[in-house]
Design a protein around this nucleic acid. Structure first.
Lengths: 152, 152
DNA sequence: CTATGTGCAAACCATTTGCGAACCC
DNA sequence: GGGTTCGCAAATGGTTTGCACATAG
């Protein structure tokens, strides 16, 4: 995992101090790509590496990384915030299907037409930096549960 | 505004009691289509109609209406929840551009290909009930601000 | 050396909940 | 009339903040 170095470089390039705690948090995010971690998850994982790390530092760091675009923050349902490294490559972009019944989150590929960023700029003069599609509905398993209920 | 009647009918059809408070809240949502109201906004507006209405009733009612699909709940940024009537007609579906600098929310038409619900079902056996696209970036005005900063 | 970051504990605040009274059907 | 809903006030819990100390550069 040498990608952590490029993440640290990105901080330096933005004139953000690279502290031990920030390095730890970036490492955790980098080792859990594709996962959606809460601030508490990251705090717990961080404790294993450096027991003295504080929860407020985790929050402050996550807010900082979000503001400079290194990580993405999601709010699924009424749950608390979840974080993951921002997608660097266009083909890494994915979206989320959220089951209204069991809360499961399924990641799916990007369904949006490639030109949609341009379309948004042409029509609204709005520069799209990030986008995320949230689809709510019923997952395969919960559909079956409901059809069983009806027949019983 | 006779649409309020069809909303009330929808409640009755779902065997949900139609109380004075629920009628008031539906009315407020119906009179503010296209707006994004917070629970507090609705509470304040409701007070003007019936001063005795309680904030917890507003929350309980909004949760109820959300669960049965009559209203949509949004979480923009770190802000608290915002609500609006669900789109009844396909062509009412819209998405949101959120400016990272000033927080302004711009509504735009649905850019997604019409067949995308089917695509999601075919590939993931997931039934799409609702979907919303959130685009973060810079609005026209804030782009100008940034370019002025650079030149000064 | 100095501005910035950190840990702790307390504060914050939108949202939820418990309970007795009020209300809809 | 009986179960649901309401209003109030108190509790909840994720997130933020104030402050004294530690640390990066």
């Amino acid at each position: 995992m040498s990608e952590i170095i490029s993440l640290v470089n990105e901080l330096e390039r933005k004139n953000i101090k690279v502290t031990q705690q920030r390095r730890i948090i970036l490492g955790i995010l980098n080792n859990n790509k594709g996962e959606h971690l809460s601030a508490r998850d990251i705090y717990t994982l961080g404790k294993d590496i450096d027991d003295s790390i504080g929860l407020s530092t985790v929050y402050r760091t996550l807010n900082l990384l979000r503001d400079v675009g290194i990580i993405a923050e999601y709010h699924f349902d009424k749950e608390f915030a979840k974080y993951e490294l921002s997608c660097q490559k266009e083909q890494d972009i994915h979206h989320h299907l959220i089951c209204k019944n069991c809360g499961k989150i399924i990641e799916v590929e990007n369904y949006l037409p490639g030109h949609f960023k341009d379309e948004i700029y042409d029509k609204n003069q709005f520069i799209c930096q990030e986008f995320s599609l949230k689809v709510s509905g019923l997952c395969k398993e919960c559909q079956q549960l409901f059809s069983e209920e009806k027949t019983s």
